[in-house]
Nucleic acid binder design. Structure first.
Lengths: 186, 186
DNA sequence: GGCGAATCTTGTCACTGACAAGTTTCGTTG
DNA sequence: CAACGAAACTTGTCAGTGACAAGATTCGCC
């Protein structure tokens, strides 16, 4: 993959982001080391700084990518709130590295324009999914319902990732999420 | 507070935990430095290791305390699921340092016996609160309902702490949580 | 009074993020 | 095609950190 003969890597930025995803899966975003990423990519320890400035810059880029991937995932389940919720949980579990970075502002440059834009797109996709919620008998409050739906999906995903859920929930996050989320959508 | 004349601190373990709470409020559990805690307590840089072994040991002790405080909080709202949920969110916001450590297993020694016991007590308190949920017309599934309630409270709290919620939610976490949680309890 | 154990200190090491300054390559312009 | 400025990357360095080892001081109990 890396030529290793040339002075210029050629695609270092992408390689570092890919290595970061791997490393985060292994040791979490906290223990992520820029120097380790540099070693994985076969470059010197200071090379990452040129592309991302510092560690927060790299994680900001990763979070931005993550929000766009989440937007895509949510959009694909359009119209069906339950499926959007399941997709949200599935995203968190299968693309854990992204998810773990996305909702930790202390790891980002929160003022990054691209990050804010990506967050906005994901928020719009979320709200679009909730618009289809059946109102039932109670007076519908779209804002309230959107928050409730987001909260339950996000909470379930977070607890799953933290390993905090009891064993009897099983090992299939999609199925378990569907069961729990149905509590809200019916 | 510290005598600074005596070789022995006298209550270093407690002082370190208190300093850790302060430091985590300021910089988060990730950037927490044992050496900084030692400075705050007026002891040498290696003193903390004697009481907690390493950083994970200190955070494990903090998480254990946190789960017991949460248990106490939940128990005080006994019988009322909605109030228990509000109390859960309020705990997360007002005792942020505890909450941020409690649900990050990568920061703990997950095999710590006291931690596991405290987690068990908190889980029992959670389930006790859910038992009072009105069954309504649908066939009640206590396990499912408990997960749903926990997820929505945990998710709302987490999103609030992450600063991910839109501005229009306001700045009163108890009130906002009550509104959202009512979506589940009525 | 004395002795073992608990508590705390000093010293050290490898690792990390950040920065500075130098080297190589790329791309574009004349 | 030459050359020149910018981009990409390297080497070198510094302070801060967690962890460990070994020694000093104090406590508590027999």
């Amino acid at each position: 993959m890396t030529d290793s003969r040339s002075y210029h890597h050629g695609d270092l930025r992408r390689a570092l982001l890919a290595a970061a995803l791997e490393a985060i899966e292994e040791v979490g975003p906290v223990a992520l080391s820029l120097r380790d990423l540099a070693r994985r990519a076969g470059v010197s320890h200071a090379a990452p700084a040129h592309h991302f400035g510092d560690k927060a810059g790299l994680l900001t880029a990763l979070a931005t990518q993550g929000f766009d991937l989440l937007t895509q995932t949510l959009t694909e389940a359009d119209g069906d709130l339950l499926e959007a919720g399941v997709a949200y949980v599935d995203f968190a579990v299968t693309r854990r590295a992204y998810f773990e970075v996305m909702f930790r502002p202390e790891l980002h440059r929160s003022d990054d324009a691209e990050l804010i834009a990506a967050q906005g797109r994901a928020g719009a996709a979320l709200r679009a999914g909730v618009a289809t919620l059946p109102t039932g008998d109670a007076p519908a409050d779209p804002g309230r319902d959107a928050l409730a739906a987001w909260s339950i999906a996000h909470g379930f995903a977070t607890l799953w990732l933290a390993g905090a859920l009891p064993d009897r929930v099983g090992d299939n996050p999609r199925e378990a999420a569907r069961t729990v989320l149905r509590r809200l959508t019916t």
